[in-house]
Design a protein around this nucleic acid. Structure first.
Lengths: 189, 189
DNA sequence: TCCTTTGTGTGACAAACATCACAATTATAA
DNA sequence: TTATAATTGTGATGTTTGTCACACAAAGGA
C-alpha cells in the first residue's frame, strides 16, 4: 500500500527513508467496495485520494438526472473534487467506485503540512497539477477537434483497459454522447 | 510592468523586497502587436508568459485548416503551450495576440531556478496549476452538460469583456460550434 | 436455482448543428 | 480617402446526434 506511494513519488522526487516516514504519517488507508462513494455530492470533501488499486470515477449529476463523467481514475492516479477540496466547500461532484478500490487519503490540512514540512513534496504536487492541467486541456481539444467516433477511438487508444472494465453507458457519459449513439458508432449507418 | 507581477504574486504568497528582487531577475519583458505570435506551432517553446496587458489566444490548427481555441488569456493570466514547454518539445499549438500585448517571459530554466531558490514560488505555481486544472475541468463539464447556447451564455457570464474584444468567429472556435450556429443562437429558429 | 438489476443493441423519429452560398457591413492599411 | 480584408447575418439543405421504445442477454443477490 504505502510502498506503492513511495514508488510513485520517487519517479519525480527521490525520498530518503526519513523523509518518506514523514510523508506516510500524513496519509490514512481506506478501502471501498464497488458502487460505494468516496465523495458524495453536497457533502464536505475531506480528502484527496491516491488510488492504490481499483477504479473510480468523478461524476457530475445534472438537474435532469443525467450523469456526466469528468474523469476516471485508476491505479497511481490522484483524484478528488479539487474545487471543493481546496476551497473547503461542499462537493458539486461525486467520486464513486467502479471496482473494489484501495486509496490513500490526504486531508487538506495534512497536504499543507506536507508541503510546508518538505518542500520536495510541493514540487511533487506541482508536477502532478501541471500534468492534470495539461491532460484536461488535451481532453478539451478532443471535444473541439473530434466527433464522437474519434473521441471514442482516442480514449481506447490511451486507456485500452477501460473498454473491458467500464460499461459502455459510462464511456458514453465520459465522451459526451448518448449510449445509443456510442453503440452505433462502429456499425456503418 | 514588474510591479503588476508583484501584486499578482502577493495575492498568494507575500514577498519581501529582497525576495521580489530575486524573482524579477528571472523574467524578461516583451511586447507584441495584434496578430503577432508568441509561440508558433512547430517551433520550440522558450517561455511561459505572464500577461501584463492585452489579450492572447492559445490556438490549435487542425489538418483541415480549422482553428480551435483552447484558451483566451488576458491581464494577470499565465499562458503557454505547457505540454511543449515542460517537455521542451515542439509546440503543437500557437499563441497569438488578439490585441497589442505586453508579457513577462519565464524560461523553463529560470522557472526551475526560481522554484529551487525560493520555495514560496513553488507553492505559488502549485496554486496556479491547481487553478488551471480546476478551470479546465469546469470547461470539460460545460461540454458534457450544456449545448452551444448554454456554453455561450456561461462564457459571457464569466468573461463579459470577451464579447466586445473578440470576433464571434473566435468565440465559436472556443465554444466548439460553427460561427453560423453561434450567430443564430439568440434569434429564435 | 430463480429473479431482479444492469447492460447492450436497434428501429423510428425529432432536434441540434454543420456546411455552402451569398449579401452586407465594418475595420484597416496604403 | 479608397480599396481591400475582416466580420457578421441568414437562407437552404444535409448530416450527426438525441430521445423514446422495445427486445434480449448477462450479471449478481436471495
Amino acid at each position: 500500500m504505502l510502498e506503492k506511494l513511495r514508488e510513485h513519488i520517487k519517479k519525480i522526487v527521490p525520498l530518503t527513508d526519513e523523509e518518506f516516514a514523514f510523508v506516510r504519517a500524513h496519509f490514512t488507508i481506506e478501502k471501498y467496495k464497488k458502487r460505494e462513494f468516496l465523495i458524495q455530492h453536497g457533502e464536505r470533501v475531506k480528502y484527496s485520494y491516491f488510488v492504490v488499486s481499483g477504479l473510480i470515477m468523478l461524476v457530475y449529476d445534472d438537474d435532469s438526472g443525467r450523469q456526466h463523467i469528468v474523469s476516471f481514475a485508476m491505479e497511481d492516479w490522484w483524484e478528488s473534487d479539487f474545487l471543493a477540496y481546496f476551497n473547503q466547500t461542499k462537493a458539486t461532484m461525486s467520486l464513486q467506485c467502479l471496482e473494489d478500490t484501495a486509496v490513500l487519503c490526504l486531508s487538506l490540512e495534512d497536504y499543507e503540512k506536507l508541503c510546508a514540512g518538505l518542500p520536495k513534496m510541493t514540487y511533487f504536487f506541482l508536477k502532478k497539477a501541471n500534468g492534470g492541467h495539461i491532460g484536461s486541456q488535451q481532453r478539451i481539444l478532443s471535444f473541439l477537434t473530434s466527433n464522437a467516433k474519434e473521441r471514442y477511438e482516442q480514449l481506447l487508444t490511451r486507456y485500452p483497459s477501460l473498454f473491458q472494465r467500464v460499461p459502455k453507458t459510462l464511456l458514453a457519459a465520459y465522451l459526451g454522447v448518448s449510449r445509443e449513439t456510442l453503440s452505433r458508432l462502429w456499425r456503418p449507418s
